[in-house]
Design a protein around this nucleic acid. Structure first.
Lengths: 129, 129
DNA sequence: TGCCTGCTTCGATGAGCTTCTAATCAACGG
DNA sequence: CCGTTGATTAGAAGCTCATCGAAGCAGGCA
């Protein structure tokens, strides 16, 4: 460990004003912005990781034990651990060990920014219909 | 063409009530839902495709010529064409040939649904204010 | 202390993805 | 009709990624 544990930081989200107000359709993404944003979507561009994220997000306690996550898939624990690591490195989730078990929870900020980026230019008409 | 041009249809978005109101955090994604949703995010999980989408979305005419897109990258036309094909197969863009040039435009519905999926759990308080 | 359970890391393998060059298809002009 | 320009398709090379088995680490219990 201690190699590349730092979460991905994207340029556009660093500038405070642009964080929530510069979706895809407002102005063209620069190459560096795209290079930093793409891995965030790549992190959720996998069925297993999408379900992992959903399972963690839906848990009413706000956090989920790895054992529960592993049980929901036909995959070996190393594979689940790998996917959780990818999500964690993207900054989408965080984890803590408490005694025997490790718990994961959602880090909603990055997900919300990704949603805003691809969302409609005027968020007013987002949830309607 | 005329081979596999059909866009990806995801289960959750077919059910009318769940389309806009079932983000990740509401209830766990089923495996089949995740399998159908993941390719949508994979389509935009590439810096080139993210910039292509942004360039097309930002064009004030609502559509963009391929020649303009190719000029914006240090990539060969076949590579741009490949990425456009991926976006088109995901249903994110559509295209039409008018004379010599081919024009692409955004298909905003799928993008909006993806945004809603990963967006905040209660879309009602998103833009209403 | 020693063992057992839960989770992660390591190393390898097979599939998929990005990119290129070469070739093909479509439209326009002389 | 033929040549030129714009765009896509076909095929291949190189790289990344998902998955597994084996091994390692951390915490609890007798």
């Amino acid at each position: 460990m201690s190699k590349q544990e730092l979460p991905i930081i994207d340029a556009r989200m660093d500038t405070p004003g642009a964080a929530c107000c510069a979706p895809l359709a407002c102005e063209p993404l620069s190459e560096s912005e795209a290079v930093e944003l793409a891995p965030l979507f790549k992190a959720i561009a996998d069925p297993v990781r999408l379900r992992l994220l959903s399972l963690i997000a839906c848990h009413e306690d706000g956090e989920t034990c790895v054992c529960d996550l592993t049980a929901a898939f036909d995959l070996t624990p190393p594979t689940i651990s790998h996917h959780l690591k990818v999500l964690k490195q993207a900054g989408l989730i965080d984890s803590e060990r408490r005694g025997t078990w490790v718990y994961y929870w959602i880090e909603p900020a990055v997900l919300a920014r990704m949603s805003a980026l691809i969302g409609p230019a005027s968020p007013a008409l987002a949830g309607t219909a």
